[in-house]
Simulated scan of single mutants.
Amino acid sequence: MNKIAILMSTYNGEKYISEQIESLQKQTYKEWSLYIRDDGSGDDTIRIIEDFKKKDLRINLIKDDKNLKPAKSFFTLMNKIEADYYFFCDQDDYWLKNKLQIMLHKISRLDNTIPQVVYCNLKCVDQNLKFRKYGFDDLIGKISGDGRFIGNDMPGCVMLFNKKTRDLVKEYKPNYDNVTMHDWWVALVAHVFGQIHFIDERLIYYRQHVDNTLGAGKSGNVIMKLFQKDLLDKQRRLVRESFKQDMEFRQAFKPILPQEKKIMLDNMMRCYDKSIIYRLKFINSYDFKQMSAIRTFAYKWTFVFMLKSSL
């Protein structure tokens, strides 16, 4: 039987973690193990987990006083835990009862001799699990191809990936300081070395509240967001983070990069010292598309005209 590992990183999650763990226990697929690494909580999170652990042998707690932040915490779990399939799990969401079953059925029918990622859609809810309309609701499943080098449409909570994916992540360790998020890195690995598959079913309630480490953003349509006064700062941050991450990806996987990706990333690296004309030609030579046409335009404009000042 395949070993299924659900990886959760917690930090001061006492408000919602019980509901999340209960949603896992209600899954129609029962043969899983939950591995929780606490990232230095100062509230009742650990006590709550230990109470669940006493009653459910599938739940494992890794105590660690270090506060690594989400990305490094999840990388730590990935490096420690051996399994056939892996799910990322946030402490404050709620999984619909058939999430595991549907996603595992999908990935089991794929070629698992290569890296595979399967991801599902989500529904944004408020802190009381009431449906709310956020900008993220309709953006999952919108990125494909080399667009993954400039954006990520899959938060970790919607992802399932196989051992081949995890083993590449573990073997070719990056400098984690240059990785924006663990989920984006896993998506890049699957894009370059394997396959990514989208299930357009909303299998998770993605909770939005004031305590979110990362969230779906403000409500309202994309055109409204385009005119937010902080848009420029957001785009410069995205260009900076994605460029730094792409260069780290180039370095980490240099020995095994497919030739076409090596050429693309080499040309991207040259953009730093080249002219605006060079950057314009580069960014238009590849299928770099964000989650919408407006987001794509904003990213490309910032990359071409403000790359150096953004880094």
Results as ranks from 00 to 15, higher is better:
Asn2Asp: 12
Asn2Phe: 09
Met8Asn: 07
Ser9Trp: 06
Gly13Asp: 15
Gln20Ser: 13
Ile21Glu: 07
Lys26Phe: 10
Thr28Gln: 11
Trp32Gly: 00
Tyr35Asn: 06
Asp39Gln: 01
Gly40Ala: 02
Thr45Trp: 01
Glu50Gln: 15
Phe52Cys: 02
Lys53Thr: 05
Arg58Gln: 12
Ile59Asp: 10
Leu61His: 05
Ile62Gln: 12
Lys72Tyr: 06
Phe74Asp: 03
Thr76Ala: 11
Leu77Cys: 01
Leu77Lys: 01
Lys80Phe: 10
Ile81Tyr: 02
Ile81Arg: 01
Tyr86Ile: 00
Gln91Leu: 09
Asp93Thr: 08
Tyr94Ala: 04
Trp95Ser: 10
Met103Phe: 07
His105Phe: 08
Lys106Arg: 12
Arg109Tyr: 08
Leu110Met: 15
Asp111Val: 06
Asn112Arg: 04
Asn112Glu: 13
Ile114Tyr: 02
Cys124Ala: 14
Gln127Cys: 04
Asn128Tyr: 13
Arg132Phe: 09
Arg132Cys: 14
Phe136Asn: 09
Asp137Lys: 11
Ile140Thr: 14
Ile143Thr: 08
Ile150Glu: 06
Asp153Ser: 12
Met154Gly: 11
Cys157Lys: 06
Met159Glu: 12
Leu160Ser: 00
Lys164Ile: 00
Lys164Gly: 00
Asp167Gly: 01
Tyr176Lys: 11
Val179Lys: 08
Thr180Ala: 08
His182Asn: 14
Trp185Asp: 00
Ala187Asn: 07
Ala190Tyr: 04
Val192Leu: 06
Ile199Cys: 10
Asp200Ser: 11
Glu201Val: 08
Arg202Met: 10
Tyr205Ile: 04
Asp211Lys: 13
Thr213Phe: 13
Gly215Glu: 02
Ala216Asn: 04
Gly217Ser: 03
Gly217Leu: 04
Ser219Ile: 08
Phe227His: 04
Phe227Gln: 01
Gln228Ala: 10
Lys229His: 10
Lys229Gly: 08
Leu232Gln: 13
Gln235Lys: 15
Leu238Met: 14
Val239Ala: 06
Phe243Gly: 05
Lys244Gly: 07
Met247Asn: 14
Phe253Ala: 01
Gln259Pro: 02
Ile263Gln: 11
Met268Ser: 00
Cys271Leu: 03
Cys271Thr: 09
Tyr272His: 05
Lys274Arg: 14
Leu280Lys: 15
Lys281Trp: 07
Phe282Cys: 06
Ile283Glu: 07
Ile283Asp: 08
Phe288Val: 02
Trp301Arg: 14
Ser309Asn: 11
Ser309Ile: 12
